[in-house]
């Protein structure tokens, strides 16, 4: 076999696979006629195949199918829901979006515990209370977070109080007065503001 052309071994397998070309087959046959070793090799391969193919059919146990059916997972409804969700990923995405958005807005509401007020000239701040002194006029909007506002003078604009109280005796406010204390109102305020910003942005662009 050592002295034989190297491709002869490959041709044998091509032959056994049934995809040998005519030229290769002719070459192989010619070689096998002249070479005892290769002829024996080929014969051994043939009997090897015959040997494996003589394996008897092993019959499947009688209760095989029953056992498979018993092992199948129960609860088709669960599978149904899963499949439905898998086919409609947009609902999962929308739900995730809502959860994340509301979470971020609500944490925003809870985290802002610090007192803050819109900077305006002639506003007086005493502790957590903002005072518009009597006789003074504040021009522009005022936003107070986590504090109260007392208006004794006049305000030419809107007042928004978040987590606080609006107190006035003889107030003179030209704009709107908003008090926001609940999470829901906070959300509504955010949405309104977002809308307003978009509108003003559009207005500017016009």
């Amino acid at each position: 076999m050592n002295a034989c052309p190297k491709q002869i071994g490959e041709y044998m397998h091509e032959y056994l696979d049934g995809d040998i070309s005519r030229e290769h087959e002719t070459e192989l046959k010619a070689h096998l006629q002249s070479c005892d070793d290769c002829r024996q090799h080929m014969q051994e391969l043939n009997s090897t195949i015959a040997f494996v193919k003589s394996a008897a059919v092993v019959s499947v146990p009688l209760d095989f199918k029953q056992n498979v059916m018993v092992r199948l997972p129960k609860g088709k409804s669960g599978i149904g829901v899963q499949r439905w969700l898998r086919r409609h990923p947009i609902f999962v995405a929308a739900a995730m979006f809502c959860i994340l958005m509301s979470a971020s807005l609500l944490t925003g509401f809870n985290d802002d515990k610090e007192f803050s007020v819109t900077k305006q000239p002639n506003l007086v701040v005493e502790g957590q209370t903002v005072i518009v002194p009597a006789g003074e006029t504040v021009t522009g909007d005022i936003v107070v977070k986590n504090g109260d506002i007392v208006v004794e003078g006049a305000v030419d604009g809107n007042i928004t109080v978040i987590n606080g109280q609006y107190m006035a005796s003889t107030a003179n406010v030209t704009g709107q007065i908003d008090e926001i204390n609940q999470a829901f109102e906070w959300l509504w305020y955010k949405i309104k503001n977002g809308g307003k910003e978009i509108l003003s942005f559009l207005d500017k662009n016009k």
């Binding site: 394996a55 059919v57 092993v58 019959s59 499947v60 146990p61 095989f64 199918k65 056992n67 498979v68 092992r71 199948l72 997972p73």
Partner: peptide
């Protein structure tokens, strides 16, 4: 398909208990 599948598993594993288990697992 049970006959074919069991046969393959049996020839691969050579053990009736194991091949039955694996062939059933394949169907599951």
């Amino acid at each position: 398909y049970q006959q074919k599948l069991y046969q393959v598993c049996y020839r691969m594993l050579g053990n009736k208990h194991e091949s039955e288990d694996i062939a059933q697992e394949a169907f599951v």
